[in-house]
Design a protein around this nucleic acid. Structure first.
Lengths: 346, 346
DNA sequence: TTGTATGCGTTATCAT
DNA sequence: ATGATAACGCATACAA
């Protein structure tokens, strides 16, 4: 790794310094009980003196495990021309997930391998690749609606944890947020604010998040005695939010309350509302979902439903680590409670 | 890595199938010339038949190299309370860098280890950690102004490439953008738009990017016959931009042109301008820097200076790979040209 | 050009 | 409780 470092100390060196055998040093390093206290102490001194650190390659060669995880970001094939996006890695939302993952990994002294797969070739090559690299487990963040990866990883016997329930049911562990509860929070808030004519802009209904939030909102409104909620389907983008808002405004001019399936669309909706001279929140109250950075930077700042994303990322880590430690036990799921963050838009 | 996979094929297996020795197979795998064409072909068939993939741990044990890189994100110690940020990984700008890095790594079949260091302990532990993991090179993205990492990595002999010129000079390779040229682009544009009273909100002047953009803008304005440019120092945040704008407006009410050191501050400035009833671009033209996603989502969309961030990330990869292949040769730097993206704010 | 033999640093099995 | 010793899968110096 460098030009001319002094050779790294090995078990052998430490053993020599401590006056014991390699095996004993190994036992100390791996925390095995059967070592006499005084010997152990001598070994620990020797380790500190030599600055010994285990050679992971050698260890992995014999144990067949690297003790390392892969953080896989899977997205549909990118169009060559959309250079501006930067892909999923530049999405602040997934940045939070990653942040949570790293935080949970830190105490274990682990660092994940970062892999982005956005082509079918990549997806085909992934499992063999993981084998070659000796990856022990996978943290999978997928945007691909019909992503084959969850199933493939499971079938390959790779300990895996997913962020968000997969679109196609599969026997794989995942974390998710209670989308319906989040939507219910928004509904209760709008009702309490005195909104009489409430509508919603939903995400794509073939995505679990889009569907659950939309359905959850209508259910909750029904529970509040509002059986019918005008709704327009968007696509989770700002532009989609703008278009949906235009349509909604045409269909329901009397609107005074709005729940939007995510902040990005809410941002678009806010712009259109301003263009139409509707004041937020005086004329119409708006609630988003995600608590993205945009919710803070827009005017007025957006009331929104926040997911404990970092906690969810941390839980994913726990899941794979557990799956690695105890193979053979079935998949788990943990659903987190969302929180309503009230700001100026309501 | 799994429950009960059939044992992975080894060199030995392939050799048996091909009817040659391990060494010959190894030569084929590593692309060494001295192999008879027919034997080579037989070996290649055998490899395909067995589905052989090299065991990286074993290879690394003998070669002392893993062929893998670390993507290190170094940031100042985080405050415990700012949970919302998600840290550097959720910054869209660095998302683009990462995207460029991954793109350049892909043809080599490499995936970086993702490491975030945001404490002094982390920084101290980094070099030994890299040694232990057998990391061959480091792609370092640092926000820390006085970050000791560039120097330490260099001294440790770790092939390293930096994103952006380090605040403290150090013999380390880096990529950067020509900040001054970018600022000059903005200046020329504002002058051409007919702005008479032009001011600037700069980033922190102790950061290279803050200083260079500010100085570059004033120089360029001087070249256009404007010797004096009112200036207020911000801190690269949206809130900082708001405060700076308030001060600037108080000092220079006649303002009709503004260059802001980054988009985030420009966003804040736009909000304040709106609050003060100033129309953009009719009353005042605004130019940002970075071409962040916010530049597209704000109203009006922001004219801004774009860095070829993905290309810069890719160049970093080239740098470390070159440094690994040919140790001992000195550091390099590559400076990229920025581009002015004209939108509605001017 | 090809094969043989050695060693890389660990863990794990076996005696002791 | 401790110490030899045999793998682990590969690259490479050397012999042929």
């Amino acid at each position: 790794m460098s030009t001319e470092q002094p050779a790294a100390p090995t078990l052998e060196h430490v053993a020599a310094v401590a006056g014991v055998s390699r095996a004993t040093v190994s036992r100390v390093v791996n925390g095995i009980r059967n070592v006499a206290p005084e010997r152990r102490e001598a070994v620990e001194r020797a380790i500190k003196a030599t600055g010994y650190v285990p050679n992971l390659a050698a260890r992995s060669l014999v144990t067949k495990r690297t003790g390392s995880l892969a953080l896989v970001l899977s997205e549909p094939a990118k169009h060559v021309d959309d250079k501006s996006s930067g892909g999923i890695v530049s999405d602040p939302f997934f940045g939070r997930v990653i942040s949570g993952v790293l935080g949970a990994l830190r105490p274990h002294g682990l660092h994940p391998m970062l892999m982005v797969v956005d082509t079918d070739e990549d997806r085909d090559a992934l499992v063999p690749r993981l084998r070659q690299d000796g990856i022990d487990g996978v943290l999978l963040i997928s945007l691909h609606p019909g992503d084959p990866l969850p199933v493939r990883l499971t079938e390959a016997g790779v300990p895996t944890a997913l962020f968000a329930r997969p679109a196609r049911p599969a026997p794989v562990s995942y974390v998710d947020v209670a989308h319906r509860d989040g939507a219910a929070l928004a509904a209760a808030h709008l009702v309490e604010r005195g909104c009489r004519r409430v509508a919603t802009i939903s995400g794509p209904l073939d995505a679990p998040a889009g569907l659950d939030r939309s359905a959850g909102f209508r259910e909750a409104m029904a529970r509040h005695g509002r059986p019918f909620v005008p709704s327009v389907e968007g696509n989770f983008t700002q532009l989609g939010g703008e278009r949906a808002m235009e349509r909604l405004l045409a269909e329901e001019p009397e609107l005074d309350g709005l729940f939007v399936g995510n902040d990005l669309m809410a941002l678009g909706a806010l712009g259109v509302l301003r263009d139409h001279g509707r004041r937020v929140p005086e004329d119409i109250a708006v609630v988003g979902f995600d608590d993205s950075p945009a919710a803070l930077s827009c005017r007025p700042q957006l009331t929104t439903v926040r997911q404990p994303v970092e906690d969810m990322g941390a839980e994913m880590v726990r899941m794979v680590l557990a799956a690695i430690a105890e193979p053979g036990r079935g998949p788990t799921s943990v659903i987190f409670d969302p929180v309503l963050v009230v700001r100026r838009s309501t």
